[in-house]
Simulated assay, not measured.
Amino acid sequence: MSTAFDKLARPIQKRIRQQGWKELRDIQARATHVLMDGNRDLIVAASTAGGKTEAAFLPLLSQVLDEPSEDSGFDVLYVAPLKALITDQARRLEDICRNTDMPITPWHGDVSSSVKAKATKRPRGVLLITPESLEALFIRRGLEIPRLFGATRAVILDELHSVLDSERGIQMRSLLTRLEIALKRPIRRVGLSATLGDMELAKVYLRPDSPGEVEQIIAEGGAAELQLQLRGYVAGDKDDELLDEARSHHGQLQFNPGRIAQLSDKAAVIATKTGSVRTTTLALALRASGFTVQTHDGFLEVFGKDESPDLINALSGLADGKEVDLFAHSPNLLFEKFHPHLTEELLQRDALSAHLDASGLAELTRSILGRD
C-alpha cells in the first residue's frame, strides 16, 4: 500500500520537500487516503494550526494536477466567512502551488475587478470566496454558473463550526444546493472545523440527504490553548476610554456560557455556545432589535447604531418575553421559501423553525443578565 505522500502529485511533493517537512501530519495523511481513494464527503476537525487546510488541499490539488478536467470552470471551490482568512489562505496556496501553473483566485469585496474579470474569462484552478460573493455570482452571472463551475470537483467549507445552525450556515447550504442543481450533479463537500462537540450535527449540515456517508477525521491529542481576539469599534473622542474598558473586560470574560462584557451602552461581547439553536435565535433577535451581530467561535460581538436602544434594556425586554420578528433583518433566511428549485419536501426538511428556539430565548437572555 502506497503512503499518503506517494499519492500526491510530483509538484506538490517537491514543494513539501522544499519547505523542509519531514512527513505529513496524521490528519493530512488520513485525509489524503480518503480524498484520493474515493469520492465521499469529509469533515476534518482539528485545533487552530493543526494542518486542516493542507489536509484538504494537498490531495485535491494533486488530483487536479494529475487528472485535469476537460470541462471549463474552477477546479476547487473554497468558501470561508472572512475576507482576511481568504487572503491568508490564498497566499498559502500560492506557495504550495509555486511549482505549478495553477491559478489561485481570491474573490471578495476588496479584490479588484480586473482580477475577477480575468478569472471569469478563463476560470480554472482554485477560487476562494465568501458566501456573500458567491451569492452575488448567482445573481449577476446566473446563466454562467455551469461554465464557471463545470470542472469543480470539490467545495471546501472552512470554519464549519461557526456556521452550524446560523443564518450564514443556512445561506451556505442553500448556495451548495443551487450549485448542484445548476450543474445537475453532486459535488464533493469537505468541511474544515475546530473540534466539534456534535459531529453528527455537522454531518447532517454538510450532506443533509446522506449524513451517514460523510467521513470524519478528528485530530488526536494536542489540544490547543483557547485564544480570544477582542475587537473594538470606536469613534470620536472616546476611543482611548472605550479601548481601555475593552481591555479590562478581556480578563474578566472567562467564556463560560452566559457571561457578558459590556463595552458601552450599545456594545458588548457575549460568551455563548456558538452554533447552538438558542444562540442563533438570540443573534437574530438582537439584529431585529437594531443591533449588528457578528458570530465567532464561542462568542457574539454586538454593536448598536446611534438609533439603537440601550443594549441592556434590549436584552431585558427579551428576558421578559418581548416578541420580535426574527426575520426582520435577515432576508437570506427567507430566500429558501421563495427559491423556485426548492420543493415542498426540501422546505419542510430545512424549515427555518427547526433551527430556532423562540421559547428558549427569554431563558437564555436571563442567564446572560445574571437573573435566576
Rank of each mutant, 00 (worst) to 15 (best):
L347T: 05
F327W: 01
L342K: 03
H355K: 15
D306N: 09
P340G: 00
E344L: 02
L346I: 07
N332K: 12
A354H: 11
D350V: 00
L315M: 13
G360M: 04
L352G: 10
D357A: 10
G360Y: 06
S359M: 10
D306I: 10
F335D: 08
D320K: 15
P340F: 00
K322G: 03
L318H: 07
L352C: 01
G360E: 09
L347Y: 00
P309T: 03
P331R: 02
R287N: 07
G304K: 01
K305F: 02
F303Q: 11
F327T: 06
H355F: 08
L315H: 01
D350N: 03
H355S: 08
T279R: 02
A285C: 15
T292K: 08
D325I: 05
H355L: 12
D310T: 11
S353T: 11
Q348V: 05
L342I: 09
L352K: 07
D357I: 06
G298A: 10
S359F: 09
A283C: 14
L356T: 15
G304C: 09
R349T: 04
H341S: 08
L326M: 05
D306V: 11
L318R: 03
E301K: 14
H355R: 11
H355Y: 07
N313P: 03
L311K: 03
T281S: 13
F327Y: 07
V302R: 03
S330Q: 10
S353Q: 09
F327C: 00
G317I: 11
L286D: 07
F291C: 03
L315I: 14
E301H: 12
T295Q: 11
V293N: 01
P309M: 01
H296E: 12
E345D: 13
L356S: 12
G290R: 05
L333C: 09
F291G: 06
F303E: 12
H296I: 07
G317W: 10
F291V: 08
H341W: 02
T281D: 12
G304V: 13
T280E: 14
A354Q: 11
A328Q: 12
E344C: 00
G290D: 04
S308G: 02
G360C: 01
G360N: 08
L315T: 08
V324I: 13
R278C: 13
K322T: 13
L356A: 12
L318S: 09
L284W: 14
H341K: 01
I312E: 06
G298K: 07
S276F: 07
T279P: 03
R349I: 02
D357K: 04
D350M: 03
D325T: 10
T343I: 00
F335G: 09
L333P: 08
R278T: 15
T295E: 09
I312A: 04
D310F: 04
N332F: 04
L346R: 02
R287V: 12
E307N: 10
S316N: 08
T280D: 15
G298V: 11
F338P: 00
L347P: 05
A328H: 11
F327L: 15
D357R: 03
F303P: 00
L318K: 06
L334H: 13
L347K: 15
I312K: 05
L346Q: 01
N332Y: 10
R278D: 15
K337R: 05
G317K: 14
A288H: 01
T280A: 15
H355C: 04
V277C: 13
D320R: 15
L286P: 02
H339Y: 05
E301S: 14
A351W: 05
L315C: 11
K305H: 12
G298T: 08
F299D: 14
L346G: 00
E323T: 11
K322R: 15
H339F: 01
